[in-house]
Every structure is written in structure tokens, then in C-alpha cells.
Simulated scan of single mutants.
Amino acid sequence: MSSSTNRYADASDIVANNWLERRMPPGWRPYSRLARLDRPIGTWLLLFPCWWSIALAQSAGNQPPDLWLYLLFALGAMLMRAAGCTVNDILDRHYDGRVARTSTRPLPSGQITLRQAIVFLLALLAGGLAILLALTPAALLLGVASLLLVFPYPLMKRITYWPQLWLGLTFNWGALMGWAAVENALAWPPVLLYIAGIFWTLGYDTIYAHQDKEDDALIGLKSSALKLGERTRPWLIVFYALCIAFMGAAGIMAEIAWPYYLGLAAVAVHFTWQVTTVDIHGPRNCLARFRSNRFVGWLLLAGLVLAGLAG
């Protein structure tokens, strides 16, 4: 194996020989990698805004937690994250082969064909539609509308230094859908929560993008990491401060109980840790800070659920 090939293997974002792949037939493994089942953090980041919004609506309405609704959104997030990754890899297959971290993904490495990837995508979308049909009409319409954000996302890194903003618009759409699945309508609290999520994504995905900035610059792709460069840390402070502010405003508008603000304070502490310890020149450090955002999801969700119980 050449030193170049070794470099690609060492830098790959695929988790080799993970527990899930060891338990599935070999023919399924490329699809598991295409869906990023070995890296569930993306599913969590897509799911938490949905769960937050469900909990916010139920806490505001003094309703008990609806575990079936939480389960439906969990399955939907898994399917739609897989669909989004598949769209991304289809459109980026020629670029991915030139980036060390992505060169061993199923499409650029030839593990599956373009036609197979498209059939897989259609199956995922069909599964997502089946889940949408089990929700309220308002949530169904919002779910269909989300495709207008999902499909263009992979193109954003070619035309703007702010693809992270488009990802924020896309990944936090569940903040609108969760409330709509409970109330069959929208209101200001989920809109404010949606805006908060956009700033959250701007923060964590800028950190994530610092892993690829050298390769991105060489092949002409753009990102907020390249745009901000050494100014990243102060901008992270801005993004995360606005996230906290809009999360707080969502709670105030929903008139939910005080435990929510304990969760929000814990999130602020975690953001402070991210900003003060991130090393934008250390890929492993950036990946760890990015993955740590699952704690943000759990902390805020805990505050919301406790607020519902206290209310």
C-alpha cells in the first residue's frame, strides 16, 4: 500500500470494524457507511431540535410526554439523516475522492454504484414519508417542505462560505415540526427555538469544518472555517450567545417552568467549555468538541421535561 493510500486510510472518517458492521451481512455494510450508521452524532444533532420542540409544546400545554411521538421522530431522524448523507455523497462523489477524510466513502471508493445509491435514497425517502403520514397535517406539510432545504445543501459549499448556515436551516427544521406534531400549528416559541438551533449549528459545524479546511482550500470548496480562520473563537462566542438568547426567549414565550432555565444554564456552561478549549488547528480536538454537542441536546431536553413535570 502506498504512503498516499495509508494517509487516506488513517484520515478516513469511517469507523472501521465497528460493532454494527460486525453484526450485518457484508453486502449491507457499504449502505451502513453511506447512511453514517457508524457515526450517530449526526442523527442526534438532527433529532434533538425535534425532541426539544415536542417537549416545549407539551410542557407549555401541561401535557404528559408522548413517548410514541418521540419514537416516531427518532426513526424519522435516522432515515432523513441517512437520506441527507446519501444526497451529499451522490453530489460530492468526485470531490470526496480528493479529500483524505472522505476518500474511502462508499461512492468514491467504488463500494457501491451511483445507481445503487439512488435506489437506496428512494427507499429512505419512502420510509420518511410513511412516518410523516402518521403525524398531524401541519407536521406533514412541514416535513415535505424540508426537502427544499435537504437537496440543495451539498451544493452550498461550492457557492458560499456559509454552507453551515444552510445546514442550520436544514438540521433544525424539526424545531418547527415537533411543535406542529403536538399542536397541528405553529407559534412563536418553536420559531424562536428554530432560530436558536441555527446559531447552534453555526457554532458546532464551524468547529467541524476546521478538520477539512486544508483539503477544502486546495479543491476550491468553501466553509465558515475558511472564512473565519483565526477569528473563529470570537465568532463562536457570538453564535453560542445568540443560541442561548433565543432558547431563553422560546422558554419565556412558552411560559414554561423554571427547571428549563437550569438546563439552559448547563448548556451555557458547556458552550463555554467548547469555546475555551477548542483548538482549530487540531482535527481530533475539533471532532471531540463537535461530538460533545450531544450533551447540549440532553441537557436542554432534561430541562424541558423537568419543566413539564414541575408545571
Rank of each mutant, 00 (worst) to 15 (best):
L149D: 05
L149A: 08
V150P: 05
V150C: 10
V150E: 08
V150D: 04
F151C: 13
P152C: 08
P152N: 05
P152Y: 08
P152E: 10
P154K: 07
L155Y: 14
L155T: 13
L155Q: 15
L155G: 10
K157N: 08
K157A: 10
K157G: 06
R158Y: 09
R158E: 13
R158P: 13
T160G: 01
T160D: 10
T160A: 05
Y161C: 10
Y161K: 06
W162R: 07
W162D: 13
W162M: 13
P163G: 11
P163Q: 12
P163H: 10
Q164K: 06
L165W: 05
L165D: 01
W166P: 00
W166G: 06
W166N: 03
W166V: 06
W166M: 13
L167G: 02
L167K: 01
L167M: 11
L167I: 12
G168Y: 00
G168F: 00
G168E: 00
G168R: 00
G168Q: 01
L169Y: 00
L169T: 00
T170Y: 14
T170G: 02
T170S: 14
T170H: 08
F171S: 01
F171W: 09
N172D: 03
N172I: 04
N172M: 01
W173P: 07
W173Q: 02
W173E: 04
A175C: 09
A175W: 01
A175D: 11
A175P: 06
L176A: 13
L176Q: 13
L176M: 14
M177V: 11
M177H: 07
G178D: 10
G178I: 11
G178R: 04
G178P: 11
A180T: 11
A180L: 11
A181T: 10
A181F: 12
A181K: 05
V182K: 03
